[in-house]
Amino acid sequence: MIHDFGIVWSERNLLLSGLGNTTILSVLSAAAALLIAFVLTPALMSKQQWLAGIVRGFVDGMRCVPFLLFAYIVYYGLPSVGLRLDNWTSGLVALTIYNAAYMAEILRGAWAAQPREPIEAGIAFGFSNLGLFRRIVLPPLLLAAGPVIGNQMIQIIKDSAFLTIIALPELTHAASSIQSRHYVPFAAFITAVFLYWGLCLVIEAGVSSIDRLAMARR
């Protein structure tokens, strides 16, 4: 058994590059999903019924699709309508769009729970449109939603493992190539599990520092 872990250790570069790719995929798609959510959320809460309805349909629909299936559609399905993306682009696009729906719903919930008066004060003091959103609405929203967004980040990291099926060289992919090369499934997969866990601990640390900021303001 020790010997098996020795084999995994000898392949550490492969694992580390897998970990690196998982991190890059997760961070990029989480950031992009959040940015898209900043647009979707105001639309969800819009007084324009048709706009709110369309976005609501997208958000609810997306949240009912298994991620694996969605990744299949983006990578294998889109080429049949003439849109061919390489595996990195497909992976990023799938993770981003899928999670934008979740992020939008998270922000909407936090927004609805915010008191109205400070936002009114923002309007009364001359903020409007983007300035109002960026300076007055968003900061308390992010502080309030920080822990839930952190949870979603963890979900994104775990979902990214599915991208091994489109041959994206992320952590699960690296672990499974090590096991198939050397027949050390337990050692290879357990090592990957611990690396995922480490990544989640980093996220947790980030969440608790946001939480400290929020606590100081509560």
Partner: peptide, 9 residues
């Protein structure tokens, strides 16, 4: 404002 409406952040 009646309920102050300060910006909490």
């Amino acid at each position: 404002f009646q309920h102050f409406a300060l910006w909490p952040h």
